[in-house]
């Protein structure tokens, strides 16, 4: 329990706004404090519908909390996407690669920062509307978001 809590803290600490750089990360962030505050439940209750679409065409619909990252959604709903979120949201793995529809991609409040783009450059099947799921924070107006999970299987030699 405590371990999970600590884990989710560290996962949340590395949004782009805090430029992560090796050992000198700051471990204080707004998102860290937010869940502990008493005024939070009202905001927490807000949900949006998101749909994950897998490479084999399977769809999975879920209600997600506003303020959660797509990585949080995958973890909290036990979506069991193989290998997803290996670095727990610290921008060092790109296993959380997602592809969005152009209209959704353009609506996102923040553009990918350099560090996110650096990781995306390693991803298989990179597209113009690719993002890292751990960097996308759900807002109220993202209701109905469709998220494609590209295939991770690829031959490293070709």
């Amino acid at each position: 329990m405590l371990r999970n809590f600590v884990k989710s803290l560290s996962a949340r600490n590395l949004r782009c706004s805090i430029k992560n750089n090796g050992v000198s990360q700051s471990f204080i962030s707004r998102r860290f404090i937010a869940p502990l505050s008493t005024t939070e439940p009202a905001l927490k209750a807000e949900k949006v519908k998101v749909t994950f679409i897998f490479h084999d065409g399977k769809r999975m619909e879920t209600q997600a909390n506003v303020g959660d990252s797509l990585l949080d959604v995958v973890v909290n709903n036990e979506l069991n996407i193989e290998g997803y979120g290996a670095c727990e949201g610290t921008l060092t793995c790109s296993t959380c690669h997602v592809v969005l529809k152009p209209e959704d991609y353009n609506k996102l409040p923040d553009e990918a920062c350099d560090e996110e783009r650096d990781m995306l450059d390693l991803a298989y099947g990179l597209t113009d509307t690719s993002r890292l799921g751990c960097q996308i924070i759900l807002t109220k107006d993202m209701d109905g978001l469709e998220i494609q999970i590209p295939e991770t299987i690829n031959d490293a030699r070709v």
């Binding site: 193989e82 290998g83 290996a86 793995c93 790109s94 296993t95 390693l122 991803a123 298989y124 991770t152 299987i153 690829n154 031959d155 490293a156 030699r157």
Partner: peptide, 17 residues
């Protein structure tokens, strides 16, 4: 199996395959 190239992500893709 692949030769010593690529990061963990690539190793993952190959292992799944």
């Amino acid at each position: 199996g692949t030769g010593p190239v690529g990061v963990i992500l690539h190793t993952m893709g190959n292992a799944f395959q």
